[in-house]
Simulated scan of single mutants.
Amino acid sequence: MNALFITIAAILLAWITLWLARVLWRGVRHDSEIEHHAVNTAVLRDQLLELEQDHANGILTSDDLADAQQELQQRVLHESIPGQTGRLGRAPGKRSAIALSFTLPVAAVFTYLAIGNPAAMSPPPVQNVPMLTQADVQTMVDSLTARLASNPDDPAGWLMLARSHRYFNNYDDAAMAFSKADGVIETDPLALAEYAETLARLKPEGFRGEPTQLLEQALSIDPQEPFALTLAGAAALERQDHHAAIKYWQQLLSMLPPDSEAAQIVGSSIERALREQAETAISKN
């Protein structure tokens, strides 16, 4: 990975974590910034031109052209959606601040590794390709929304729309779209974890209830899903179950290269959870 990128990202992540934790400590809601990734428009332009040429030559009918354009827009939209920099819950108070400070760095790392594009940190130096703007992505989201309105029996489309709304911090709309993607997310542990986090952002009680049930379902499908393990630890910490939080994060740590930055972040979170567990035990005696 590019050393300059890692340095800047680490500084920004630390600053955001401290700021959000401070706001939560005071009992005020907060919203995180999500890193915006762009999409290569040159490929999109060429493929759209090819489709139009095939239509002009009589190879594609008008209906086939419309369907192909929608599929191309969906693929480009899917590639444009970045990893979520997991902000954990919205339940105000000191416990949420502590949980946030433990888990935000971990969630950011693992969400990016799961969904992001690490190779983009070191792009070929000779290319200078125009990129889609956020407005272009929003246009594709609007197109997908319109298509699903007329053809709602498309779980994969609803999942894509849910992730798109998360991209724009529209968590109410994201939760609605996730609820209509049952046929897909029931077997997708990452999607279940994303749905759980979306609900936790919206619910005053945070991860309690349905979000925790979704995380348990995700881990029953894949006990080694990194984002689900990260959020499960956050949910346990939120309910002051330090033992469970430490267990989830130790399992996560065992999956990481020992000298990696992610392992250091997880290890630090475990150490802090152990200290808080000890302090809680002392205060009860």
Rank of each mutant, 00 (worst) to 15 (best):
A235L: 00
T139E: 14
A56K: 14
G86V: 11
A149E: 10
L231M: 10
L12D: 05
A120R: 07
G89M: 07
V184W: 07
Q240S: 10
R87T: 11
P155F: 01
P105C: 03
S268Q: 08
E210C: 06
A196Q: 06
R22A: 15
P204M: 12
R26Y: 02
R26F: 08
P223H: 06
V126D: 07
R201H: 09
T61H: 05
N57A: 15
G83A: 09
L77R: 06
I270P: 01
L190Q: 08
A244G: 03
D31T: 12
V126Q: 10
E197T: 12
T280Y: 02
A91L: 08
P82S: 15
W19T: 13
P211R: 04
S164M: 00
H78V: 10
I59L: 13
S164H: 01
V126Y: 04
P123A: 05
G116L: 04
G83S: 03
P211S: 09
D153C: 03
L77I: 07
R22D: 12
T230L: 01
A162K: 12
P211A: 07
V43C: 08
A191G: 02
L199V: 07
H37T: 09
E216L: 09
A278Y: 13
I270H: 01
S254D: 15
L100C: 08
L237S: 05
L159T: 04
L72T: 02
D136P: 09
Q240A: 10
L231G: 02
L44G: 06
I265Y: 08
E271T: 13
S268Y: 05
L253F: 07
E225V: 00
T7Q: 11
S254L: 10
P223T: 01
Q250H: 11
I221H: 06
G209E: 06
R90L: 10
D188Y: 00
A235T: 01
D54A: 13
L51Y: 14
Y167R: 15
A149K: 06
R95Y: 08
A38Q: 14
R166I: 15
A114L: 04
K180T: 03
V76E: 10
A191V: 04
P204R: 15
I16A: 12
E205S: 11
Y167W: 12
P211K: 07
Y195W: 13
L12I: 08
D64M: 12
M255E: 11
A177S: 03
N285K: 09
E52H: 09
Q70W: 04
E197A: 15
A135W: 10
I115K: 03
L192E: 05
Q251P: 02
I16V: 11
K247A: 14
I98E: 14
G233A: 13
L100E: 07
R166W: 07
L237Q: 02
A281S: 07
A68F: 08
A228N: 01
G157D: 05
Q213W: 00
